[in-house]
Nucleic acid binder design. Sequence first.
DNA 1: TTGTACGCGTTATCAT
DNA 2: ATGATAACGCGTACAA
Lengths: 350, 350
Amino acid sequence: MFEPTIKDIAKICGVGVSTVSRAINNHPDINAETKEKIMNTIKEYGYIPNNSARNLKRVDAKAIAVLVKGISNPFFTDMLKVIEAECNKKHYSLELLHIESDEDEVDVAQKVIKEKRLRGIIFLGGLFSHSDEKLKKLTVPFVFSTVGSVPENMNKKMFSNIGVDDRKESEKMVEYLISLGHKDIAIIVAEQEEKSIGMLRLEGYQDALRKHNIEINPALIFPTEDGIGHFSMENGYRTAKKLIESGQRFTAVYAVADALAIGASRALTEAGYRIPSDVSLAGYDGIDVSNYIIPSLTTIRQPIEEMAKDTTKLLFDIISGKREHQHIIFEAELLVQESTCQVCCQTAIN
Amino acid sequence: MFEPTIKDIAKICGVGVSTVSRAINNHPDINAETKEKIMNTIKEYGYIPNNSARNLKRVDAKAIAVLVKGISNPFFTDMLKVIEAECNKKHYSLELLHIESDEDEVDVAQKVIKEKRLRGIIFLGGLFSHSDEKLKKLTVPFVFSTVGSVPENMNKKMFSNIGVDDRKESEKMVEYLISLGHKDIAIIVAEQEEKSIGMLRLEGYQDALRKHNIEINPALIFPTEDGIGHFSMENGYRTAKKLIESGQRFTAVYAVADALAIGASRALTEAGYRIPSDVSLAGYDGIDVSNYIIPSLTTIRQPIEEMAKDTTKLLFDIISGKREHQHIIFEAELLVQESTCQVCCQTAIN
DNA sequence: TTGTACGCGTTATCAT
DNA sequence: ATGATAACGCGTACAA
């Protein structure tokens, strides 16, 4: 099958290649008639400009990329939807990149910057501590989204980040549980790496307990299993099972992600617990499904829409030189729903 | 910042560019020592080959693309996970493309084939009737995945498709509901376009009713709303509300997607129905969350893992010339869980 | 307003 | 085993 290039089109139309180039790139210096003629032949012959060749020459591309670590996380796809819409509004095209949890997002970003003529990058998920040296290699502005706190040793002038204060919000949730009279609060926590989101939320849990003079019982801290997705429902289910089998006394379960909480709800139900009358259950994230399940899940609702909008807006502002790098913390909302209640309403267990 | 090209590296090492090219592309004809020296300087200077330039020259790329229509659908992200893993096994790289529901997937595919040197494409979602002419323009093999039936007028030699028989499986579900004694089965159906997945599942519903001599009551067919995601929980919620407000008598609700069913479950619960004792609820897809919610959802479980594996395997086989295009239908499983029961256990309503 | 010619960074071909 | 050089398809300075 014949795949015409810009030269072929030029030859067919009896014009020079630059004229064709001008036609397809909406340059002003071109006769309306010639342009129309060219556009017609382009359509007729099904000519498609080769993007690789374009990228090789172009300086300017009106394109950004989103680099997602863990695309199956509904939290990210929700963000993605909004980001895509914002980009369309600005007539920017969006390159979607997905990486495995063991790849280095900055390395990948570097490559794609070279390949495309990107003007900026949004990181979704991942990150925690990258060396300045590495970040310096990214020649376009970038924003770490859904990242509320960054390690102290990073140079904050080099990047933006937007997110909620995981530690504080987590504390908020646990304080709420305490206010309901809960003292034996089990926690299901993912990702035990230092400074990970999971760790921050665990620290918030500990903060709350300390603040209210409740002893931290290590036997109530249940890390998720490796190898099956730290934020998956299956992992929440399995980990909750371990909790139940441990024989520890608890009146509330706090899972550091809604997906984990949903998995836990099944384990608890199967073991005969009723939620919330026997045990209160709380999550974190505020993903869509949390509002529809029965009972609906008490959770920390991250302002997905606002965060996503602000992320893109900030990136565009930095690109156009309107703003410097920012470090924006959003307030999350304690969303009290049906899965939690006063401990006194609960049947004593163990 | 200095961004070295292949020429710079060559100069620094005192070799020709072709030698550097051979080093980075693992060509056999190269001295081990020179190669090592080159690789070292590459690392030292942080050289990254420009992919656009590569794609421009290269014939061969060991890369395929997945074109997803509706990335927020958990069903697709589940598939995606498996496809990614399979590609890694084969040492193929994977380009992820996302398109809006109103874009034409074949057009997008065409562009990216030109840009990259792809060897094949997997379509996830979308499709239903594309003209032969258009498909002819795709110069690499492609597979429509999760598509069980294709319009008669399409030339089946040009493409592969893999999926379940939506109409038949849907019928299976409704027959099961009928076997439980249900006659007044409301259906929540998405995407009213001809030959869409939603329509196929609706046809299956009608087939089942006809087969068992139950009159099809149009007042029990509830299409989802436009403009908010035809397969979203919110839409399931709203549509179920309409059903409830309609005052129609029903003993079972069948939603043509699990997400819709989950939304419906909340609407039903809020209206005072207990599931399944007051009303049975059934979904379709078998997404993860259906197994964890309470009550777990009776659904048609599509063999996600197998379908995804087979999709990639088939594509690779076609690429390597081992097989012709195939049209593979998988059996889905009627997964009976907690959300359905005999109608006689149910309280009469209306 | 239009056309010519060069170069973007890389790989493939052909010498050596 | 290695190097020089011609493409790849396009955008753009510059000339016309």
